[in-house]
Computed example of a mutant assay.
Amino acid sequence: MYADVMENIFLLVLVTLLSVVQNVFFALKVEKECIGLNSKQHSTAFERLSCANRNCMDTYPTFLAVLWCAGICLSQAPAAFAGILYLVVRQKYFVGYMGQTCQSIPGFLFGKRILFFLSLMCIVGIINYLMLTYGGSDYKEYIQTITKAASTLLLLP
């Protein structure tokens, strides 16, 4: 039984651990910039890093919730793929914020699109479960096929 459970969530666990490592990286960057400052001196680089880190932390619980919900309720592979894309986009957002603020906008918009896709996966998975429970109709295989194809569309700019 343990192997069956791990098989269904392994990719989600991997993406979650990668996101934790990324959060540690962000925190270390902010700490490194903070150590270089005097208490009376505020650099714009520190302000930008701190703001980027706060923004990433604000969306992190939402990301984890929709990642796991989409992976468990519908399909693990497309959810994990979208999760990896989200981490790449979040890295682009963070690095873009270290330059000029306008460089972070593409990462922000792309991240919103990925979160929307994961949220849509959650909703469709829940609706399918309710249809199976109360209506006797299971469309999970069809939906999974569509979701796997649609997840590749996330790569389009």
Rank of each mutant, 00 (worst) to 15 (best):
T62V: 13
N55C: 07
S75A: 15
D58H: 02
G36T: 07
G99W: 00
G125L: 01
V15S: 07
K112L: 15
E33Q: 15
G71F: 04
G125A: 02
V124T: 13
R48I: 01
K29W: 07
G99V: 08
C73V: 12
S39D: 14
F110C: 04
K32L: 10
L85V: 02
V15Q: 03
F117E: 02
L132Y: 12
Y129L: 06
F94L: 01
I72Q: 00
L118D: 03
K112A: 14
N38I: 06
G125W: 00
G36Y: 06
C122N: 09
K148Y: 11
R90N: 07
I123A: 14
A3Y: 12
P61H: 12
G111C: 03
F81Y: 13
I126L: 13
C56H: 03
V20N: 08
I146K: 08
Y93P: 04
K112I: 13
Q103D: 13
V15R: 10
Q144D: 08
P61W: 09
L67M: 04
V124N: 00
L87Q: 14
S39Y: 12
V15C: 05
V124D: 01
F116A: 15
S43F: 09
I9F: 08
T147D: 10
F110L: 11
G99I: 10
V20Y: 05
G83E: 08
L28V: 13
L132I: 04
G111I: 08
T16F: 07
R113Y: 00
Y139G: 06
R54F: 12
P106I: 07
A3K: 12
P61T: 09
Q41N: 15
S137G: 09
R54Q: 14
L87C: 10
L132N: 13
N128P: 07
F108M: 02
A82S: 13
E33H: 10
L155M: 15
L156V: 14
N128Q: 05
G107T: 02
I9K: 04
K40F: 11
Y129R: 05
G136H: 03
L64Y: 01
S43T: 15
V21F: 15
G99H: 13
I84A: 02
C73I: 10
C102S: 12
C56I: 05
N55S: 11
N23P: 01
S75G: 13
F81T: 05
L132A: 12
E47R: 13
Y97M: 03
I143W: 05
Y134V: 09
Q91W: 02
Q22Y: 08
L37N: 11
I126V: 15
F94D: 02
A27W: 01
F46Y: 14
A52Q: 06
N8T: 08
A79G: 06
L115E: 01
K29M: 12
V88D: 11
T145Y: 02
P157W: 08
E7H: 15
Q41I: 03
A82C: 10
Q91N: 06
C69I: 00
Q91R: 05
Q76P: 11
K40H: 12
